[in-house]
Amino acid sequence: MISARALSKRYPQGIEALRDVSFDIETGEMVFITGRSGAGKTTLFRLLAAIERPTSGSIVVNGQNLVALRESAIPFLRRSFGLVFQNQKLLFDRNALDNILLPMKIAGLPANEALRRARAALDKVGLSNREKADLLTLSGGEQQRLAIARAVVNRPSILLADEPTTNLDADSAAGILEIFRAFHQVGVTLIVATHDPQWVSCVSPRILRLDQGRIQEDVE
């Protein structure tokens, strides 16, 4: 359960990226955050993942108030999320498998268990045959799927994804939506930011539409 109250974020330069944003997301829900470029989607993503702190307001995730969280507790909070970043943040000097092993290395999982889970995650996103692939040889869609695999490999209960379909054709985007639906079906809470409402229309989920940092509509 995620609950945001009167969230505002003003960047040091004075830009108000979010203004008075409030919402509740139940466990297991699938929510899409839409809005045009600059609406504040990434900012909201960063606040939810405790990468930034809000200027005012509160965010409570599973009973933990992120605003009051000690600096040293933040890494552990992040591990409970699966995070897919807008610019993916993959490591291009490593192969696909090593990218996926990173979160488990951070969590201190034994090597054999980590390898097993990494292969399962690659399998889930349809990349099991590209295990040793150099990242530069992966297509944009494959890179996106790899980023998703890395996000879910630690079996998070909440998956946060920021623009997971940028630069993808409709087919690849549909493939990623399928992957998300599969996670939704096993009870993972999904929060996905996208500027492409067309993409999600076929699953008719809940949509939070942002405009200039405010929630414009919140529809099922």
Binding site: P75, F76, R78, K89, L91, L102, P103, I106
Partner: peptide
């Protein structure tokens, strides 16, 4: 630097 940034983003502690 990249690797360190990514590791931190996905939950690496300072100690790690």
């Amino acid at each position: 630097a990249d690797e360190i940034e990514v590791a931190r983003l996905i939950g690496a502690t300072n100690a790690f």
